[in-house]
Design a protein around this nucleic acid. Sequence first.
DNA 1: TTAGATGCAAATAGTTTGCATTTGT
DNA 2: ACAAATGCAAACTATTTGCATCTAA
Lengths: 144, 144
Amino acid sequence: MSNALQRLRDAGYKLTGARTTVLRVLEDSGGHVTSAELLERVSTADANIGRASVFRALDLFTRLAIVRPTYGEGSAAPIYVLLPGGHHHHIVCTVCHRVIEFDDCRLGELNRELEARYQMQMTGHLLEFYGVCAACARNVAQEA
Amino acid sequence: MSNALQRLRDAGYKLTGARTTVLRVLEDSGGHVTSAELLERVSTADANIGRASVFRALDLFTRLAIVRPTYGEGSAAPIYVLLPGGHHHHIVCTVCHRVIEFDDCRLGELNRELEARYQMQMTGHLLEFYGVCAACARNVAQEA
DNA sequence: TTAGATGCAAATAGTTTGCATTTGT
DNA sequence: ACAAATGCAAACTATTTGCATCTAA
């Protein structure tokens, strides 16, 4: 059983069809989906699952730090990111919104320091870098 | 003139009343507001400014990495965070959604490495830690 | 002077809720 | 058995768009 399902159960939540399907779709999508894509794929996987349950599952997963919503384009349209092992890191081009994922793990010490300083029990973190990708930089240069 | 206004002008955008007001309200709010609060405060500051212009300004600021929307409670209701000097760091309690801000600056080197590796011109970053605060941990313990 | 930005109000997306029914434990 | 979770569809909220007007450069 996946680590996330284990966490769900340990926290006292039921392992329902809707929840396991949403989780599987998230994993199959590379851990990076908009809510619209997610709704569509979940519906394809099992047409009986309602939108509301997908949102309820995402809410729950967010509280358990299994997943994290983050802003994609504009202000609407969140992207849901899996936090396997509790963390995730990526770079977003603020012009074309392309996302590059990268591994990193230099935050362990900072994590421990913050837990001690603020009396928090950390469950994960998300690190986003913003910038302009090479392609967009060229376009901007051309326009100018 | 604020650094952000300078960036706006340098990128070739006009320094309009709506934009400067939105920016000032953001700064006066400690660089941490929901869109609802922002709309209200901007409207108080200058009743002639329309909602649309506030959203358009936020969009622009996001592209310029002056600001970053991040998820507060549930899936709706973004919080806009100023990225002074291009970055910001905080801890969110995933239960009560309280936010603790902290300073940090150990990401400079990683930033440079990523710029080189992915040919990106970085404009900033956001680091969020998730966890359960002491108060919420107590509540959960009581319930169980 | 004039391209770019604005304000308005209507249109659109996206998310949440209430409640009867089903399901995991 | 029974509390918890679901599915549905309607209600809501938040954001975006089109267009005539205004304004910073």
